[in-house]
Amino acid sequence: MGLEEVVTFLIPTLNERDGIGLIIDEIKSLGFNKIIVVDGNSTDGTAEIAKEKGAKVIYQQGKGKASAIMTGLKYVDTPYVAVIDGDYTYNPADVFKALKMMEDYDEVIVVRGNRKNIPLINRFGNWVITKMFNTLFGTRLKDVLSGFYALRTNEVKGVNFEAKGFSIEVAICAYLASQSKRIGEVIGDYRARKGVSKLKKIQGLKILFDTILLAAKFNPVFLIFLIGSVLLIPGIAILSYVALDYLAYHIFHFVLVFVGFSLFNVGLISLLLSVLALYLKRMEYRLNEKIEGLKRDV
């Protein structure tokens, strides 16, 4: 069975007339004919162009990129699915590098290697979100927000990722990481987009917030203790005030000392437990990763 028969390209679109035809032509020139375009009711003729180019066009259920991808996965009948944005920024030829790794991984992310085509503020936001994701989920990813990635279909088909909009990439990674599935990366090309970007600056903050919510779902113990550690701040503030008042005016506040020490101790214990919970989660992920690797070798 050739590669063209084992992978379906899934392209979520909304008003991408400038890029969709070009990306479909490139995919077909590589020998891939299973192409599903999930359109979010574009008004610029995107769906019509995709149909003319020979892609299967499906109109998504709901709104946003997350709904488009979850809608499209229902129609995938190949072992692998390659999700790629329809704005021409990604080079579909990089799918060959990703598919070479799919025997050992459940998701392979095509990392955006050419960062000059990403606005500086977006680069910073991607870095912050990826670092936070790695901290919360014990991964070592370089580009959790890449819009081009290959997935093992049976691992994601039918899953409700409970994500909205552009948080879908983070939600997929969070789901797979929490299931101790293996996530790999390859370096790919990243070109200047065709058309107008749909990603607004405020959406970066939403993705960051959604990452925290995903951590609450998949690693709640860590997040609970992390929130508890915030009590360190008022505890230190109160104890500092008591110490300064005593040194300056020789006034000792017994009640405030009790309150300050209580908050400080609860916060410190919570902080230590959050670190412990994080490392236990990382250890679980690494052990399961080793076990899965051994299973594949048998």
Rank of each mutant, 00 (worst) to 15 (best):
A68L: 10
I69T: 09
M70H: 00
T71M: 08
G72P: 08
G72A: 11
L73M: 12
L73P: 07
K74C: 08
V76K: 10
V76N: 08
D77K: 12
D77L: 01
T78A: 04
A82V: 11
I84N: 06
D85P: 04
G86H: 05
D87R: 05
Y88A: 13
T89P: 00
N91P: 02
N91H: 06
P92C: 10
D94M: 14
D94G: 00
A98P: 02
L99Q: 10
M102D: 11
M102Y: 11
M102L: 07
D104F: 09
D106G: 09
D106A: 02
E107N: 05
V108W: 15
I109A: 06
I109G: 04
R112G: 11
N114K: 14
R115H: 04
K116W: 03
K116I: 14
N117F: 15
I118P: 04
I118N: 04
I121R: 10
R123Y: 01
R123L: 12
F124G: 01
G125V: 01
N126K: 08
N126V: 14
N126Q: 14
W127N: 10
V128F: 07
I129T: 05
I129A: 01
I129N: 05
I129E: 02
I129F: 02
T130G: 09
K131A: 10
K131E: 13
K131C: 01
M132Y: 11
M132L: 15
M132F: 11
F133A: 06
F133C: 06
N134Q: 07
N134V: 09
T135S: 03
L136A: 03
L136N: 03
F137I: 00
G138A: 09
T139Y: 06
T139E: 13
T139I: 05
L141N: 08
K142Q: 12
K142N: 15
D143S: 10
D143R: 02
D143K: 02
D143T: 00
L145I: 04
L145A: 10
L145Y: 05
G147R: 09
G147H: 08
G147Q: 07
G147F: 12
F148L: 03
F148D: 01
R152M: 10
R152F: 01
T153K: 00
G158D: 11
G158V: 12
V159M: 05
N160G: 09
F161L: 14
E162S: 12
A163R: 05
K164P: 00
S167I: 00
S167C: 07
I168H: 14
E169W: 04
A171C: 03
C173Y: 00
C173H: 13
A174D: 06
Y175I: 06
L176E: 10
A177L: 06
S178F: 10
Q179F: 02
S180H: 14
K181L: 14
K181G: 03
I183W: 13
V186L: 14
V186W: 15
I187L: 15
I187D: 15
A192R: 15
A192Q: 15
A192G: 09
R193C: 03
R193Y: 00
R193L: 15
V196D: 08
V196W: 03
S197C: 12
L199H: 08
L199F: 10
K201Q: 05
Q203N: 03
Q203L: 02
Q203D: 07
Q203S: 01
G204D: 02
